[in-house]
Every structure is written in structure tokens, then in C-alpha cells.
Nucleic acid binder design. Structure first.
Lengths: 341, 341
DNA sequence: ATGAAAGCGCTAACAA
DNA sequence: TTGTTAGCGCTTTCAT
């Protein structure tokens, strides 16, 4: 009736419980004969090792995913990626939504580490940009992996998985420019938002590579929201040098832009091209579906998870590694050549 | 250097480690004097009880949130609600995305329960509608709470938190009808989708309460997607008795409907009223923002979490309880009185 | 190749 | 009010 323990299996198999332990942990020095018998008894009793007891003797089998991000889609994809890796390796995921501006984060995480619940932490922006937090966690013996925007690791603190927003911005802008657009607007710059900085940098690069200059009046600050997209686009349409293409910093902005264009009797993409970034559900939640940048969040997260787990499993302090992911241009129907003048 | 244990605290305080345990667990029979001294030592050493060891002696301190739902927003809200309750009660949340059509679910969960990782499970639709799964988990001594669409618990298997889709559908339809609409379409019926059945039922009720009959040609089957919303609306607009209002089964459908209306030069809500359901981000990802139904997912989830935790903490088998939540009509700008003929 | 003993950090049961 | 003794289910260490 009660859950069988290692001892029950041992009794049934007529061996010492240590032998059962050896079989369960695939340790050497067990004769084939005994091994099979034990295996049988395990299945017969439907024995499952007690995860808790194991954790007590070894290290924790859980890692935490810490995030402060209003974008559900992003969080879920990350989460799923991490979980898929966790399942493969027999780990558990504890999720920890938090407010990055609060002082609590460190304390909360310290509590989880201190109580032996978790051994590793995966941090996403903006938390991952917080050096202080990273150091704090490191000092408490937690393994930390950061997911960051950039083309490499910014320091040697802890491994990072980096996402090259500059390159993606460059590629997307190049696509627009090569389509023949001369006036491209950039919507949704946000100085404190690392990714948007990178995307703008790529935007500028693509221009200079083609000997073109970015019209600073066409670079608009804004939130990553639909409403902000509408507002910025409205502003754009009032301009004398009205752009023929719009590079929106994310899909929600782009969706708002599409809507505003439509409101002004402009056809997308015939009269104006509008592209997004992120390949979020919003990119197909508008018409035409958005040409956008596909960010492999699932893979990024799985990679980060693999890294923390590796770190948790090897006692040695390995040299800091980092791994980068490329973002892909996803051509759909919201961009085309500019209208003939 | 190493993490302090209960014994270290005891040594420092000059008491037995059991006394420290008493203080930590707020048990009675400790003199104020000793208590304060121990408290001091705890802070001085920065002692934190080892969660794992505790779990081994008592019951697991984790519960699982099992879901199979493509809607990130829904999942995140649920998750946040559960976590907020978990934090209050010192529990951990393990999330378990899964494929409800797979045979694995039961096995996977059984493994988690069997290995003593989790003691309770929160199930959402469509998993929560699976009686077999519920029984299976119950047989393995897991505490189960289901979140279900309906006006009460369908059985005595396990407690449920129910969400009254019928009532919400009725209220929303009543709102439209009372605005003066005579032809209201229902978009996105899906026989296998419990909630959509409930919403349609409410839709019908509201009509009959006003002595009106539902035009079955205006009830369209469809997916819960933007594209499906567009397609269904297109079909609608071809009808001779074109409806003046649209009740979309969720916000994505409604957003698609708004877009299609716009494409056909119809103003929303002046020419046609369109309402959604769910109050998801999509409801403000269109213009005008959607009048919709607000579903308190966070509270629903928190309530379910509170229930499982209660069940995990009391040994007694309590009589099955259930708790319902009302959905609120959220009036925004996508519905108004029908146009004058 | 196998087993016995010790002990992880804690709580429960029982003294004192 | 306080302390002692077991022992949770497992792994580690050290025999045999």
C-alpha cells in the first residue's frame, strides 16, 4: 500500500539494499544476473527512487527560471525550452516571476538557494543585465547562466547565451533597403532596452553599408505596445518625407502600425511596408501576416538550461563558456517593393 | 563556509537542536528568553532550514500545474495566480506542460508523485475534463483540484473551481440585445470545447429570455484564431440578413472579425458591433479596443492553489468542496447600438 | 561483486 | 520547558 522503498526491493530480490542502489544508479560491480533480478523486482513493485532523499545526499535537482517580462509568449517559449531540457536530464524547473526593480529578488533567490531547493539559475533580461545580482548569486554558490542581447559575453562572471539583435536588425533593414526603400522608419526605440538598442544599431549599419544615411526624424521612441505603434505611425504619416517602409521593434508595434496605416486608407504592403520583430502570435494576428524576425526562444532557453545543468553536474569550475544564436528573417506578406512614385 | 545547519545554531545558542527546531517551526513550549536567543543566532548565522530534509520527514512542499493550452496569456495568468498563493504558504510550483492527447500524461505525473516530488496537482481544461486521469491520480494519493467550465462540480471525485461560461455568455449577449441588436452572430463554436458550449448556451438563454429566437445560420463553427475570425466574418458579411453585432467566442476571433469588417469598409462599432471574450492582450491589440468578458484567471488559479495546499496540509479527507467565479462584462469601445436602418 | 555502518538535516515520539 | 533517541530513503565509505 505504501510507496515501496529501496529496502522493499532489496528484500524481495534477496540482496542488500546497497546492491539495489547500485543497480538504480547504474554503478559498476554488479553481476548481470543480480542486476536483472533486481530490475524485475523494481518493475514488480513499481519502485521509484525518492527524489527528495536523493537530493539530500547529493545536490539539488532543480533550477530556477527567473524572469520579469510582460510578454507571455516570450516567457512561455523560454519556459518550454527549459523544461524540455530538464526532462531529458531528470531535473525540475521552479519558476520565479519577479519584479526586477524590487530589492527582493536577490533575497528571494538566496532563500531558494539557501534552503537547498535549487542549484542553478537562468536569468533573462533585464535581470540578466544586473551584474550586482549575478555576483550576489555567484557568492552563494549558485550556478548562473544569463540570456543576453549581444554578440558575445560581456564579462567573465558567468556563462551567457547571447542573441544577436544587431545582426538581426541589420539583416531585416537590409532586406527592406534591397527591396528599394529609401525612407525607412524605425519604431519603438527605448534607450533602457538593450535589445532595441541593438536593433537600432543594426538598422544604422545596414544603411551605412549601402552608403545611405539614417534620417533621425524617422527614428521614433516608444513602448512595445499596439497603442504606441498606432501613435508613432500616426506621427509618421504626418511627415512630409513620409517613409515607404516601417521597421517596428516588435510585432505589437508593427500590428499597431498596420492598423493605423489601414485607418488612413493605406494598403499594406502596396502603399507601405511594415515589418515586425519577434515572430510572436501578434505577427499573425493582423493582416497581412507580418514579415518579422524569428527568435528561437525555445532553443535559446534549452541551451541555457543545458549549460546550468552541466555546471551543476561537474564539480570543477569550468572556464566560462558562451553560446550565440542567430535570428532568422521570416518573410511573410507585410513588406514589398515601394510603390512607384 | 558551509551552509549552517540546525545543529550549528544549537551549538551557538547553547541549547539542544530540538529546541531550535521548535523555534523554527513556531511550536509552543519554548520560553521567550530561549526563543529570542535562538532567533538571534539564526540571524547571525544566516541559517535557513533545509527544505529538502523537511520534505523527507513531512510531505512534499510542491504542487504541479498541469496544462495543455496554446494560449500563453492564459497559462501565464494561471501560473502567476498559483505562484502567489504558493509563496504565501511556502510551497513550490512545478509546472508541467503536456499534450493531453498523449498517453504519457498519467505516467509522467505518476512519476512525479511517486518520487515524492509533488503532493498535489492543479488541472486545467481539457485535462481537467478527463475523469480517467483524475481517478488515476487520486489512486496514487495525489491531491487534485480541477478548474472547469460550468456552474458547479460535475461529480464528487475531487474539488473543482468552476467558471461560469453560461452566465457570462448570457450577460454579454444580453448586453448586445439590450443595445437594440436583433441579429447577433455567434463566432467560434467548437463542440469539443466545453467553454464554447457554455458560451453558446448563455447566448441562447439571453435570446429566449427576451422572447427572441437564435438564427442558427448565424452560429458559426470555428477555431479560436484570428484567421478563423476573419474567415467567419467574411462568410457573415455575404449573408442576406447580415448581423449588426458579433459575439466572438474569444478575443482573437473578435480581432479577426474587426479586421475583416474594416477591410469591408465597415466602421466598428458604428456599422457593426463586435465583442470578444477573455480580456486577453489581443483585446487591446486592435482598434477600437474590444468590449469583452474579463475572466479572473489569476484569482481562479490562486483559489485552486489554496485548495490543493489545504488538502495537502490536512490529513483528514474533507468533504469535496467547490468554488465558483463570476466573469465580468468589460465594456470598452467595440460595441454600440445598431445603425439606424 | 556484495554488504554493513554511518550519516545527510530534519521531525516525531518519548523521556526527563 | 527542554533534551534524547530514532529514523525518513538514500548515498558514501569502508569492509568482506
Amino acid at each position: 500500500m505504501k510507496k515501496p522503498t529501496i529496502k522493499d526491493v532489496a528484500k524481495l530480490a534477496g540482496v542488500s539494499f546497497k546492491t539495489v542502489s547500485r543497480v538504480v544508479n547504474q554503478e559498476p560491480n554488479v553481476s548481470e544476473e543480480v542486476k536483472t533480478k533486481v530490475q524485475e523486482c523494481i518493475t514488480k513493485l513499481n519502485y521509484q527512487p525518492n527524489h527528495t532523499a536523493r537530493t539530500m545526499r547529493k545536490a539539488p535537482f532543480s533550477l530556477a527560471f527567473v524572469y520579469d517580462n510582460p510578454n507571455s509568449h516570450y516567457v512561455i517559449e523560454m519556459q518550454n525550452g527549459i523544461i524540455s531540457e530538464c526532462r531529458k536530464r531528470g531535473f525540475e524547473l521552479v519558476i520565479h516571476p519577479t519584479d526586477s526593480r524590487s530589492e527582493e529578488v536577490g533575497r528571494e533567490l538566496a532563500a531558494m538557494i539557501g534552503s537547498n531547493q535549487i542549484g542553478g539559475v537562468i536569468l533573462t533580461p533585464p535581470l540578466s543585465e544586473n551584474r550586482e545580482l549575478v555576483t550576489f548569486l555567484l557568492n552563494r554558490d549558485a550556478k548562473v547562466v544569463r540570456i543576453l542581447s549581444g554578440s558575445g559575453a560581456p564579462d567573465d562572471l558567468a556563462p551567457v547565451v547571447h542573441v544577436n539583435d544587431v545582426e538581426a536588425g541589420r539583416r531585416m533593414t537590409g532586406y527592406l533597403l534591397d527591396l528599394g526603400h529609401k525612407n525607412v522608419a524605425f519604431l519603438g526605440y527605448h534607450a533602457s532596452h538593450e535589445s532595441s538598442r541593438g536593433r537600432l544599431e543594426g538598422f544604422v549599419q545596414a544603411h551605412s553599408e549601402r552608403g545611405m544615411k539614417v534620417d533621425r526624424n524617422l527614428v521614433l521612441d516608444g513602448e512595445f505596445t499596439f497603442d504606441s505603434g498606432m501613435a508613432m505611425t500616426k506621427q509618421l504619416l504626418g511627415l512630409t518625407n513620409r517613409p515607404t517602409a516601417v521597421f517596428a521593434c516588435n510585432d505589437e508595434i508593427a500590428a499597431g502600425a498596420v492598423f493605423m496605416a489601414r485607418l488612413n486608407q493605406l494598403q499594406v504592403p502596396d502603399d507601405i511596408s511594415i515589418v515586425g520583430f519577434e515572430n510572436s502570435p501578434f505577427s499573425t494576428q493582423t493582416w497581412p501576416h507580418l514579415t518579422t524576425i524569428d527568435q528561437p526562444n525555445f532553443d535559446i532557453a534549452a541551451c541555457a538550461a543545458a549549460m546550468v545543468i552541466d555546471m551543476m553536474q561537474t564539480k570543477e569550475v569550468k572556464s566560462v563558456k558562451s553560446r550565440g544564436f542567430d535570428l532568422k528573417l521570416l518573410v511573410r506578406d507585410s513588406a514589398s517593393a515601394p510603390p512607384k512614385p
